[in-house]
Design a protein around this nucleic acid. Structure first.
Lengths: 143, 143
DNA sequence: TTCAACAATGATAATAATAATCAATATGCC
DNA sequence: GGCATATTGATTATTATTATCATTGTTGAA
């Protein structure tokens, strides 16, 4: 998804919630979309500091939360200590293979699994909205 | 799994790691196995306090970690703030349907999904060791 | 059984991530 | 423009987990 599309989605989301557009939100969204696909709060904050030396950590943190709520970002917890934010739109849903040794992760997707997950939820009278699947083990290099 | 079996598994694990048997470890294991299937550190600590008023929170916390490493317990993170420990042995592997509204979760299992997960890992030259699958949505009562 | 090495405990402090507070400021609707 | 109020940024609070460390307990070997 391009930046303009992301901006529009976010703008609509803000309006619907009675929230306001600010220059910081513009900068945060821009930095997020043009950054690496997976980024931590710290990293995003450091990138932003260059363009907006006055921006506060709390602001970045708060607004990453809003980006998640609006559907532009997704929070992934790697292991126990690291939280990364991932660009969601323009990237198909996927799951992760996480290496327990080196910490790297690979994105994977299996349409058959997705379908079975929906069926499984349905069979339990459960309305699925999103899901997370992570396979832990050893990657090619580490095994 | 019975308590004696759990004790043996834990005992073997400790020996292999060069760790020692202590009365606290006995009590923690006992309390864990006889408690609810899903329990938080706080809850387990409070249960233990009754029998062992002198036991420390750090000790309970530390040893729940060891129970996980030994394969007797499993850590599940519900949402963002709550961590529960689940009895693992004697209960087949399963995944969770987690209600975003009331927080309750249901255990589910689908052999076909398990198989596809293994194939998916294999196709990526990845050696799977464990996995986590959580489907978030609305449960029967809340939807 | 005794001893020496060292792991474990429990109290407490340290970390670290996220959330809350709040005065000053910016935004958007009228 | 002006007002109501959302946002910001600095700071503090909160919370879960981890580290520290003196004391105690456990274990294997003599």
């Amino acid at each position: 998804m391009g930046i303009s599309e992301a901006k529009e989605i976010f703008s609509i989301y803000l309006k619907k919630k009675g929230l306001r557009n600010t220059s910081q939100r513009d900068e945060i969204l821009h930095a997020f979309i043009t950054a690496d696909k997976h980024i931590t709060v710290d990293d995003l904050y450091n990138v932003l500091k260059k363009r907006c030396p006055d921006i506060g950590y709390a602001t970045v943190h708060r607004n990453l939360g809003l980006l998640c709520e609006s559907g532009i970002a997704d929070e992934i917890k790697i292991g126990n200590k690291m939280t990364k934010y991932e660009q969601k739109y323009g990237h198909k849903h996927h799951d992760h293979l996480i290496c327990l040794k080196c910490g790297n992760f690979t994105e994977v997707n299996d349409e058959r699994i997705e379908k079975l997950q929906d069926k499984l939820a349905e069979a339990n009278d459960f309305k699925p909205m999103r899901h997370k699947m992570e396979i832990y083990g050893l990657c090619k290099k580490c095994k």
